[in-house]
Design a protein around this nucleic acid. Structure first.
Length: 498
RNA sequence: GGUCCGUUCGUCUAGGGGUUAGGACGUAUCCCUUUCACGGAUAAAACACGGGUUCGAUUCCCGUACGGACUACCA
């Protein structure tokens, strides 16, 4: 490559919610672009009008924004190569396809879908596979077999037709993938792919090559599912006489267990998300859960995703986006597919949640604690933050602070509750109203005083006391919990059992 | 079926011709603690198989097996 600026693109198709694997592809593109001081483009590949899904494009934009991938150029941002939506560029593709026909690198084909399907079936019956290629094209209806006048007449009459690439019969296609090194394919394995569809729209193959060229893309970083068609793209660049970008094909994200690539079904089965944001399918109304709504922090999702298929080679696990940008390198990407293990994502989430300040977590949770003051919410967050994986669990686990227990842990009550303990509790309830100010510390001092007086070890009363106050045998720091509950509530709860 | 790509602990992975094959998640045990978590420590746990090449292969080569992707006028 020349010394031109690195330009990469993320080019999703707006056919539904952006899959988490797509987010990882976007992330690797982004990390590479930032590290190289290059540009990150977003192009929407919506050349299939049948698969258009309303809202999908906005979803993509919102998802990228949520995880912190910023776009320099493209849909939603604009830029010197606008438009970045292929449906809005459709007028340009036919000319490019026809350039290829003029150069004898492509041809018109008039075979209908039905005719081709029939061919496929016939071949299959004979135990072989039909391919529209250098051999079969001599017997099919196209501008290579039909007289020139007839071709013109058919086109003039508006007869539906496609444009196909004239793939050379015998040629070794060789290219170097940045992750997989040399990849060799013989041209006889590639069929004469449709470049321009009958509806006038380009196929992925044409649109992607034309746009990457026009948008001056230097590195195509995409999923492994594109590897088999990469030789075709190489051929296309050659046919156009264009310099081609570098290719890097990323390993796939696999199911947590069993075989195959990660799918939406795994999400339903495993009870975890495979989409960054919640998505309601407009056609069916079915809602798919999202990482965001499930309580995952964007930093955790990014860190988790970055490590699925890539590793810095050091023992550092926690990486901010900036650290990832600094450490990232395409040649450290693993070649094999990576199983999606949500347990690791949860661990990252826990780590990042702990890093967040009590105040910021409290702020994010204020809707869930409508009745409480910001100070109180912050205390609750402080009490529980290090014990949970998701912010929402703080809300769930703090319920006992607001509601007196209706039942008491049986095992503790039968084994640890006795006359001595009862005496302590009774005395504690008596002295507590005088404690001023009422804090975790003063409450603890008061308790010490009572147990000392009664000659009972603190350890003997702590758990029964916890059960009396919260109903549960285990939980967060009891004294702090009491402070948050407030003196009156604590005394009430103590008296309830006496 | 064909083409292409891949294969190190259960999972994500580091490493690389001679290593006690390293780390992280998860799991187990112990410590800390008023309990549970957190945290700390320890442990069990891997080079798919078969042939070469080599003094020596998990590492290089070839096969086999297994896995995956692709095989549309979808991307």
């Amino acid at each position: 490559m020349s010394s031109t600026q690195v330009r990469v693109r993320f080019a999703p198709s707006p056919t539904g919610a952006l899959h988490i694997g797509g987010v990882r592809t976007a992330l690797y593109n982004y990390l590479f672009a930032r590290q190289m001081g290059g540009k990150m483009l977003l192009r929407i590949e919506d050349t299939d009008q049948n698969r258009f899904v309303p809202g999908a494009e906005d979803y993509i934009l919102e998802a990228l924004q949520w995880v912190g991938i910023t776009i320099d150029e493209g849909v939603g941002v604009g830029g010197p190569h606008a438009p970045y939506r292929q449906s809005e560029r459709m007028h340009m593709y036919r000319d490019f396809a026809e350039t290829l026909i003029a150069a004898d690198k492509a041809y018109y084909a008039f075979d209908t879908t039905e005719e081709l399907d029939e061919m496929r079936q016939t071949f299959e019956k004979q135990g072989s596979t039909f391919q529209y290629n250098s051999i079969t094209r001599t017997r099919l209806k196209n501008s290579l077999t039909l007289p020139a006048e007839e071709v013109q007449a058919r086109i003039a009459a508006g007869e539906p037709h496609v444009i196909r690439l004239k793939v050379p019969a015998k040629e070794e296609i060789r290219f170097r993938d940045l992750i997989r090194d040399w990849v060799n394919v013989h041209s006889s394995q590639i069929d004469d792919k449709v470049l321009l569809k009958a509806d006038g729209m380009p196929t992925y193959h044409l649109a992607n090559v034309v746009d990457d060229h026009l948008m001056e893309i230097t590195h195509v970083i995409r999923g492994e599912e594109w590897l088999p068609s990469a030789p075709l793209h190489v051929l296309l660049y050659q046919a156009f006489g264009w310099e081609r970008p570098e290719f890097a094909h990323l390993p796939l994200l696999l199911k947590p267990e069993g075989n195959g690539k990660l799918s939406k079904r795994d999400a339903d089965l495993g009870g975890f998300p495979v989409f960054p944001l919640e998505w309601e399918d407009p056609a069916s109304g079915v809602v798919a859960r999202g990482f965001r709504e499930d309580g995952y922090l964007p930093e955790a999702v990014i860190n988790f995703l970055a490590f699925l298929g890539w590793n810095p080679g050091t023992e550092q696990e926690m990486f901010t986006m900036d650290e990832l940008i600094a450490a990232f390198s395409l040649d450290k990407i693993h070649k094999g597919g990576a199983r999606f293990d949500i347990a690791k994502a949860k661990w990252f989430n826990q780590q990042y949640l702990k890093q967040h300040s009590d105040a910021s977590v409290a702020e994010s949770l204020k809707e869930s604690f409508a009745e409480s003051s910001p100070e109180k919410i912050e205390k609750i967050v402080h009490l529980l933050k290090d014990r949970v994986t998701f912010p929402q669990e703080i809300v769930e686990q703090s319920k006992f602070l607001f509601e007196a227990p209706t039942q008491y842990d049986e095992q503790v009550m039968t084994t640890k509750w006795n006359a001595d303990v009862a005496a302590v509790v009774e005395q504690y309830a008596k002295v507590l109203p005088e404690v001023e100010p009422f804090t975790a510390e003063t409450a603890k001092e008061a308790l010490h005083k009572v147990t000392d007086e009664k000659g009972i070890k603190l350890g003997k009363v702590m758990q029964p006391l916890r059960v009396v106050l919260t109903g549960a045998p285990a939980g967060p720091d009891l004294m702090l919990s009491m402070e948050i509950m407030g003196k009156a509530e604590v005394v009430d709860r103590l008296k309830k059992v006496l």
